[in-house]
Nucleic acid binder design. Structure first.
Lengths: 217, 217
DNA sequence: TAGATTGTTAATCGATTAACAATC
DNA sequence: TAGATTGTTAATCGATTAACAATC
């Protein structure tokens, strides 16, 4: 494996490659060329080969790529060949939503606890899991060897929640709070701004509408 | 407003500009220069000016940008100055999660119905909303003037769900299903692959770990 | 008017695509 | 061996940054 910095654009494409490879495996397809893969996935064959060659030469000239072999390589690159223990901070609507969502996850991602400051919610059961007191988060992360903290608090509490999680030793933060947070550089951070995504959808809807109007004149 | 095609990178930054502007408004800040804004938001001043000038000259030389004025311009660009009526297709864990999430949305986004094929779920109440029969979706979208369909079905049903929504006349689709779908070009499509995002997080966690090991030798 | 800061053109950088030699 | 397809270098394209004239 080479050691040059991989661009984020490449990393964002890897899970997508993987999804298509899994579909191919299900269909019993054993090998695929970059050209065939290009037709399926919509990236150019050239880009697929470039992307993969950031990590190694997984193909074979004159043959193509082994579907299962490539999927396994991508699993290893993404680190999906191990378990990740997760906690959620914030049991409001957003936290409840994400807790619910984690049930649909495949692979080694395991939700181990949900934490909340609101005394009305602490101790309540939510989708088969007891909501715990936020004050116990540091102990819990240490004792249960939690890898990932998922932040579903409100804007105001998000940075403090991140600080606590990082202090307690999580290796990654998945931020759903509607604010940008900072973490030490030894902690990975992935941001999901669902409302930003919805706003982008609204933009595109209006853009299409504008163009339709324009073409009518 | 100019009419050249705006790149997606720009559009993805607009909601973020907006979020920061709203924070500034709350603090009572009335004007901001691209340089000050750059320090807050982390994009270069040059990029901020470039981005905004895709849509018009909202600033004033020697002064900067009016915070409220700029926020209103961005609202108009994104189309946030109107109401959006939404339905969710799929009331499983994922659909339940997103239904829950929509409660936290501000602005004109309104969830009007949740639909499901599973007879065990149809008729049940979920977070204050009765789950409706999927067979009635086309009528409902037409009668209730639904703008946005949110797809939270399983992989297998997602494309058919999209087809029905488009046929019924939605203008936008927000896809959370773990599969890529196609829609007619007069319908806007925004994709959220939460699992892809989590996989990218796993990559970065493992990347950091690898570098730490590397530096120890 | 002088100072500040935009709007916009030009330069740079990085990512994507094309081409082709290497090789299975 | 001949054909196919990769891995990789070179060319192109697009997006970001820098520079500066316009102007409030």
């Amino acid at each position: 494996m080479k050691n040059t910095k991989i661009s984020n654009a490449v990393i964002k494409r890897l899970p997508r490659y993987r999804r298509y490879l899994i579909e191919l495996e299900k269909k019993g397809v054993e090998k695929i060329s970059s050209k065939e893969f290009s037709n399926m996935i919509g990236y150019t064959a050239s880009q697929i080969r470039q992307d993969l060659n950031n990590f190694g030469g997984f193909g074979q000239q004159g043959y193509g790529y082994s579907v299962t072999g490539l999927r396994e390589e991508i699993d290893a690159i993404l680190g999906l060949d191990r378990e990740y223990r997760m906690v959620i901070l914030g049991a409001g609507n957003l936290g409840h939503a994400i807790a619910n969502y984690t049930k649909t996850l495949t692979g080694g991602f395991k939700l181990c606890g949900v934490f909340e400051t609101n005394p009305d919610l602490i101790g309540k059961m939510q989708d088969g899991m007891e909501i715990q007191n936020y004050d116990n988060i540091v102990d819990f992360v240490e004792k249960e060897k939690i890898d990932i903290g998922i932040i579903c608090t409100n804007k105001e509490s998000a940075q403090e929640a991140a600080d606590k999680l990082c202090f307690a030793g999580v290796k990654g933060i998945w931020n759903f709070a509607r604010v940008d947070i900072e973490v030490p550089k030894h902690v990975a951070l992935e941001i999901v701004h669902l409302s930003d995504s919805l706003h982008a959808l609204a933009y595109h809807m209006n853009d299409i509408k504008k163009k339709e109007k324009g073409s009518k004149k």
